[in-house]
Write a protein that binds this DNA or RNA. Structure first.
Length: 549
RNA sequence: GCCUCUGUAGCUCAGUUGGAUAGAGCGACGGAUUCCUAAUCCGCAGGUCACAGGUUCAAUUCCUGUCAGGGGCACCA
């Protein structure tokens, strides 16, 4: 319906511009207004035309309405500075309700047009368990992927495993040193300065000693290799476990090592050189990113001959393009801030369109308990693990809370609120609305009401029902916007609104009524549509929709 | 110093990417349960949209500057 109207108005406008001899594109919006008295749809086209037609917007609006009425019988009024408010017939609402229930893809859209998109997220180094910062990235990334899937993108979720480089040496050394400590020879093997201090390293060392008690006696290089293997295997398994519990899945894990194995770093470097932006200075190899707006040039290969982390990362992104992806999304921690610009520069050098690469920064998470911040720091080993949070508040609350706020704002996660099983907690508020519908239907059966879906629907639709249905329809557009701007928190906000209007409707209207089966069926059908809508929305957020609470 | 995010009700935050009288939750205050789940609902109070300019039919939204807070800055990853 909205698409239909948009197209028709678009044609009318084009005609008007043509008549006036103006050769320009004019965009306008057609929205479902917040306020009931503003009609079912509102259009700002008249105001957009003011500049080009040089007429009073109200006169233009009248003109548009006349032309609109030639094609469709609609109830249009002019309001405010020149808005056109349009009222729709009840039958459209009835159709919509049935559509929501029966058409699984009602809330889908096709802004992706089948494009191959990759969402790369979490990508935590296998040097320690996931912490609450990763949790936010995981919840966000997973929901973004789901949004894109609903929006006609062909989505692949990928986890980039940094299993090469210096941090791996540190990890191996950390385990080695802890093993030595356990064996009482800690003084012979000092703990590395940049080592990992968390207790999990000690656990890994203990576990290692059960199979390799002689670790200190074998060749050091070989021993470190064993330590590393054990550590990565254990930690990655832990990470996978946490993610699984958090309902986050990946299609692919991409190993940094494989880049070297397949000589992708070298070949990418060669490609980069073709751009003419690569130069040598002080024995190191640089990329002239300042030519493209970066504030300093970046090193590709250190004077020691080693690559910086930057170069394999470029190769990795090149590889994404090579695999046929047309839309790359990186979800990164806020500390990667400087990284985005230089990656954009590098990809520009490789002749990729800037709009094909989007990097989103996830801002920090503070945990609040008893009104106070719990601090976290990876370096000191005092981070708060994601698994702890999940245990504490549950997956539903954790995932919902993470996506309750915009990703680019720092977020205070109130543990007490997330845990509370009360009306303060927005997760339960929404889930409760879903459960209520289910109990209504069960009660109808018990009361012996012969519920036929769709029966009496038009009869049941009054102004309160219309408000509810509008809120359902709106989710479709919220999803489209959320996908476009990668902002799943819009969905969580809208679900709260929808739940609120349902609770209010429920309280103010007796839905089950043996005396009037028609209206009862109609209302139940609408309620069912509400449940479907809420479930679709919760799915995006990775939150369950219980039938009973 | 440079980059970046943020500044909206007492608190935590939305605000459909420039639209109509700026919204919600919590908190405060006052109400609703012989009736489908009170994990609910209804009412009321609460605002210089940090500040100053600019762009235009229209600015909380875009631009410039100022102030305040968070995060970042490497031949680290």
């Amino acid at each position: 319906m909205k698409e239909n109207l948009t197209n028709i108005i678009d044609e009318i406008i084009k005609g008007m511009l043509k008549d006036a001899g103006v050769n320009e594109e004019v965009t306008f919006s057609l929205v479902i207004p917040e306020k009931e008295e503003h009609g079912d749809f509102a259009c700002n086209a008249a105001m957009q035309l003011v500049k080009h037609l040089k007429k009073n917007p109200k006169i233009i609006a009248e003109d548009i309405i006349n032309k609109l009425n030639e094609k469709l019988k609609l109830d249009c009024t002019i309001a405010g500075p020149g808005f056109i408010n349009i009222k729709i017939d009840v039958s459209w609402y009835a159709e919509t309700v049935m559509n929501i229930i029966n058409n699984e893809k009602y809330f889908h859209n096709n802004i992706g047009g089948g494009k191959k998109a990759m969402v790369e997220f979490v990508s935590a180094n296998p040097t320690g368990p996931l912490h609450i910062g990763h949790g936010r990235g995981a919840a966000y990334g997973d929901s973004v992927a789901r949004l894109l899937e609903m929006s006609g993108y062909d989505v692949l979720r990928e986890y980039y495993v940094n299993d090469a480089g210096n941090q791996m040496n540190n990890l191996a050394l950390s385990v080695y040193a802890r093993a030595a400590e356990i064996l009482g020879k800690g003084s012979e093997v000092p703990f590395p300065e940049a080592g990992y201090h968390g207790d999990y390293i000690i656990d890994i060392a203990k576990e290692l000693l059960t199979t390799h008690a002689n670790i200190l006696e074998i060749d050091r290089k070989e021993a470190l290799e064993i330590c590393l293997g054990k550590a990565v295997q254990t930690i990655q398994a832990d990470i996978d476990n946490d993610l699984k519990e958090f309902r986050v899945t990946f299609h692919n894990y991409f190993s940094e090592k494989s880049l070297y194995k397949n000589k992708l770093v070298e070949s990418t470097l060669k490609e980069l050189e073709k751009s003419g932006k690569v130069f040598e200075q002080d024995g190191a190899l640089w990329l002239k990113t300042t030519d493209m707006g970066d504030d300093k040039d970046r090193v590709l290969r250190k004077s020691t001959g080693e690559y910086t982390y930057f170069t394999p990362d470029i190769a990795y992104h090149q590889n994404k393009y090579d695999r046929g992806f047309e839309y790359l999304i990186d979800i990164l921690g806020a500390d990667h801030h400087g990284y985005i610009k230089r990656m954009q520069c590098a990809l520009e050098c490789l002749n990729h369109k800037t709009e094909s690469f989007k990097a989103t920064l996830i801002q920090m998470v503070n945990l609040i308990q008893n009104g106070e911040k719990i601090s976290m720091s990876t370096r000191s080993g005092e981070f708060i693990p994601l698994s702890w949070l999940i245990n504490e508040v549950g997956v539903d609350a954790a995932r919902f809370f993470y996506n309750m706020r915009s990703h680019d704002a720092q977020f205070d996660f109130d543990i007490d609120l997330a845990k509370s099983k009360s009306n303060d907690n927005p997760v339960y508020y929404i889930q409760y609305a879903h459960a209520r519908v289910n109990s209504l239907i069960e009660n109808a059966n018990e009361k012996g009401i012969d519920y036929k879906q769709g029966q009496g629907l038009e009869k049941a639709i009054g102004s309160e029902e219309i408000k509810l249905i509008k809120n359902m329809v709106k989710l479709k557009y919220v999803i489209e916007l959320s996908a476009q701007y990668l902002e799943p928190h819009k969905v969580s906000y809208h679900l709260q609104e929808l739940a609120a209007s349902f609770h209010s409707y429920y309280y103010n209207n007796k839905i089950l009524n043996n005396e009037d089966v028609d209206t009862t069926c109609g209302r139940l059908t609408i309620c069912e549509a509400v449940a479907v809508t809420i479930k679709q929305g919760l799915d995006i957020l990775g939150v369950s929709a219980p039938k009973r609470m």
